[in-house]
């Protein structure tokens, strides 16, 4: 059986909010490393990969590996019944038909118990190759969100150019064009507001803004986002949490 207790229900709520517009029916794969999911959107253009490490739960008990087939719209309905500060416990049998979710308030005088019906989900798993990226940019997640929301007003695509000078997001559409350039800067007082660029070679790639705007729903999970790019490979957008991560991969747009 599985028993996994999370101090803050808000963590799972934010994870589900971040991915539920991209993927609907997913498996939570529970194993010794924690609770993981990997799922592609219907168009096979984007992939979400998430891990909530076992260390982030206390306790984390698992007798054998199990997959919990979950409809995220249904899970969202149940999670709405939890306060962000509630303690959340997930429980399931070894061959589960349902997932139990128990919410307890910090004062320990309210216990809510819900059962979510599980589904059989046949999932395609993508072998994601280990990639040495040519450029890794870490920046405030709120800044990345603002840039994507601004540029999507002008175009459905953005070109990201990473060089020693900085990172430039540019777009062009029917009404005109626009760009935002960020220079590398180190904020000593507030490291989360720094922009860092690690570069082995310059990279220029074009991506659909619709997906990037969608990824930015994960901004609540982390004040920092990391963009990893190499020419002609999918973009990796990572939001790291204290004990886990949400990663998005996005296939580029490529010229004929």
């Amino acid at each position: 059986m599985l028993e996994a207790r999370l101090e803050q229900a808000g963590v799972l709520k934010k994870v589900v909010d971040a991915i539920r517009d991209l993927v609907q029916d997913i498996n939570f794969d529970c194993n010794d490393s924690g609770i993981a999911l990997q799922a592609m959107d219907n168009s096979h253009v984007a992939l979400v990969s998430m891990l909530l490490k076992s260390e982030g739960f206390s306790p984390y008990r698992l007798d054998r590996n199990i997959a919990l087939g979950i409809n995220l719209t249904s899970l969202t309905k149940v999670l709405r019944c939890a306060q962000n500060e509630d303690i959340l416990t997930l429980k399931a049998e070894d061959t589960p038909d349902t997932l139990s979710l128990i919410f307890e308030n910090a004062e320990n005088d309210r216990i809510s118990e819900y059962e979510l019906k599980l589904m059989d989900i046949d999932q395609e798993h993508l072998g994601i190759p280990e990639t040495e990226y040519a450029a890794a940019i870490s920046m405030p997640s709120a800044e990345f969100q603002r840039i994507c929301r601004d540029l999507i007003q002008l175009s459905d695509s953005v070109t990201i150019e990473a060089s020693k000078e900085g990172v430039k997001f540019s777009c062009s559409g029917d009404i005109g064009s626009g760009s935002v350039t960020l220079r590398q800067q180190n904020n000593v007082d507030k490291p989360d507001l720094s922009t860092k660029i690690e570069l082995t070679e310059p990279v220029t790639l074009t991506f659909s803004l619709k997906y990037l705007v969608n990824f930015c729903k994960a901004s609540a999970l982390s004040s920092v986002v990391t963009l990893s790019l190499s020419n002609e490979v999918p973009l990796l957008v990572e939001y790291a949490m204290g004990s886990g991560f949400v990663r998005f991969y996005l296939a580029p747009k490529i010229g004929e």
Partner: peptide, 14 residues
């Protein structure tokens, strides 16, 4: 004109 690729072009489906 650039066209949208899919992840299957870069990753192996297993």
């Amino acid at each position: 004109v650039k066209s949208q690729t899919t992840l299957g072009r870069f990753f192996n489906l297993s």
